[in-house]
Simulated scan of single mutants.
Amino acid sequence: MQFSKVITHDTSFHADDVIAVALLRTAGFQFEVVRSRNQALLAESLADPEVLVLDVGGIYNPLMLNFDHHQDASMMSAAGLIYEQFKDAICPADAQPFFGNFIASIDAIDTNRDNIFAVWNTLPRGFRNTSSIIGGFNREVTNSAIQDEQFQKAVKFSLEIITNEVYKAVKKAKSEAEYAKRTILSNNVAVFDEFSTVWKEKNEHTFAMLPHANGWQIQSIDTTVAKVPENISECDGFVFRHASGFMAVVKEKEVALAFAETL
Rank of each mutant, 00 (worst) to 15 (best):
T26W: 00
E254P: 01
T224F: 12
V141L: 11
K202I: 02
E201K: 15
I184P: 01
S36P: 11
Q96P: 04
D55Q: 06
G245D: 03
A248I: 10
L65F: 08
E261S: 14
F3M: 08
T224M: 08
W120P: 02
K174F: 00
E201P: 01
V228S: 04
E32D: 10
N143K: 13
H242T: 11
T197D: 12
M247R: 05
D88Q: 14
A47V: 09
L185R: 03
V119M: 13
C235Y: 00
K253N: 10
V249C: 08
N164R: 12
A258F: 03
I146V: 15
T122D: 09
H14K: 10
S132P: 03
H69T: 09
L123E: 02
I232V: 12
G100Y: 05
F240V: 13
D236G: 07
D10N: 14
L263I: 10
Y179N: 06
S233F: 00
A256C: 11
L159C: 11
M209H: 05
A173H: 11
H70W: 09
I59K: 14
F192N: 05
I106G: 04
M209I: 06
F240W: 11
V250H: 10
L41A: 10
M76A: 15
V21D: 03
T183K: 15
D10F: 00
F259T: 02
F127T: 14
A180S: 13
F102T: 02
L257A: 04
E44K: 15
F127H: 12
V6T: 02
T197A: 10
A190R: 01
S186Y: 01
M247E: 00
D107G: 10
R35T: 03
L263P: 14
A73Q: 08
S74I: 05
V53T: 15
G58A: 04
A118I: 04
S175W: 03
K251N: 12
Y60D: 00
